[in-house]
Design a protein around this nucleic acid. Structure first.
Lengths: 197, 197
DNA sequence: AAGTTAACTGAACGCCGGTTCAATTCAAGG
DNA sequence: CCTTGAATTGAACCGGCGTTCAGTTAACTT
């Protein structure tokens, strides 16, 4: 056998990425083999190499796409008001965006160590750009006297860790709805920096 | 060659565990081979099996030891006062304990998926016991009217995520000292639940 | 000093990893 | 309908994987 009936790169390509994302998130990059991915896609392992240069690129492209999407979505937010409103908007956005794609988030955070130095640097730079957006909000709020935070950098990392943690437990159709969860997290974030809820 | 001069199980055993912990944390369980561990210990791969039944047990034992140590240390804390004091103590303890052993923390959190079901259950139970300790504090504080939190479970997970995040960036000898960091995190935790800093 | 036990080697076993490539089959355009 | 190009197979390559074990040497006991 060779080419299959109904085969098209516009179909197989995305399916490979989707399967790889699910498997990487579930079992970890190193624990997933190309043959496993191929099997779930319904194809032989060799066929994957029509869509990716190697396993490493499959991971790196996935992470880059995710972070670029995150930055694009952040930039598309309505223009900012005072620091308090900006922080609330950021927190809601962060939680909402992350619970919608837990696999991509998990991978972008956990598989950094499986990247080679060059690709690691590129991905890390994107992540830092995102963190900087929050840090700017906190610095402005601190300068305006509305946030009570001893250290801006520490507060940035603490808030991001808290907000990202939502992916550890949130499940669609669970006890709490998406809007509810966004509101509670935003409220905690505001309180944590001393901006009354 | 066979037995080496100066070889003792009380030396080799701990060294294997130390090397494995460092490598697992750095590269991930699945990406580290028994031969790599052996090489860093200065021994042949076969010798590792005098100290562990298999690779999986090496990981599981490591995680169990870490979580049991965490629970023991938590139980050894001075007896509790009011919820506010208890939360502050918990936050300081959590941050302090975690930044002292970042590798073990990272592994206990990231490599859960590499455990087989039976071992996973055992480790997860320990982790839940620890979370319950915090949840109890929050529930008591909420009942006493000193914490303003819409959902106790959510607040528990949010706080743990925030506090554990310290391991992502804290480095010994960095810009901020250990006591300083503990204080700032404890302050943010208290504020986040509406207990004035 | 001899005998016993503890610690380790080195080679082997079978299997699975990522990756390549000639051969093959399908889809599409003229 | 025929040709050209796209999509895929299947087998192979080579290396590394976890694990076992008979054999060897050091440390300890008597």
């Amino acid at each position: 056998m060779a080419r299959k009936t109904g085969s098209h790169s516009e179909i197989t390509g995305p399916r490979i990425r989707a399967v790889a994302e699910r498997l990487f998130a579930r079992h970890g990059y190193a624990a997933v083999s190309m043959r496993q991915i191929a099997a779930e896609v319904g194809v032989q392992a060799g066929a994957l190499y029509l869509y990716t240069a190697d396993k490493q690129s499959l991971l790196a492209d996935m992470m880059r796409d995710h972070l670029e999407g995150l930055l694009t979505a952040l930039a598309a937010l309505p223009p900012p008001g005072d620091p308090r409103a900006r922080l609330e908007q950021f927190a809601r956005f962060h939680v909402g965006y992350h619970i919608a794609r837990p696999d991509a988030v998990f991978i972008a955070y956990m598989e950094l160590r499986n990247l080679e130095p060059a690709q690691f640097e590129a991905i890390e730079a994107l992540r830092r750009r995102y963190e900087d957006a929050l840090e700017t909000i906190l610095r402005d709020g601190r300068a305006a006297g509305v946030f009570a935070i001893p250290d801006t950098k520490l507060a940035t990392l603490a808030l991001i860790a808290m907000l990202t943690g939502v992916t550890n437990w949130y499940r669609e159709g669970g006890r709490l709805g998406r809007a509810e969860v966004e509101a509670i997290y935003a409220d905690m974030a505001l309180k944590a920096v001393g901006a009354a809820g």
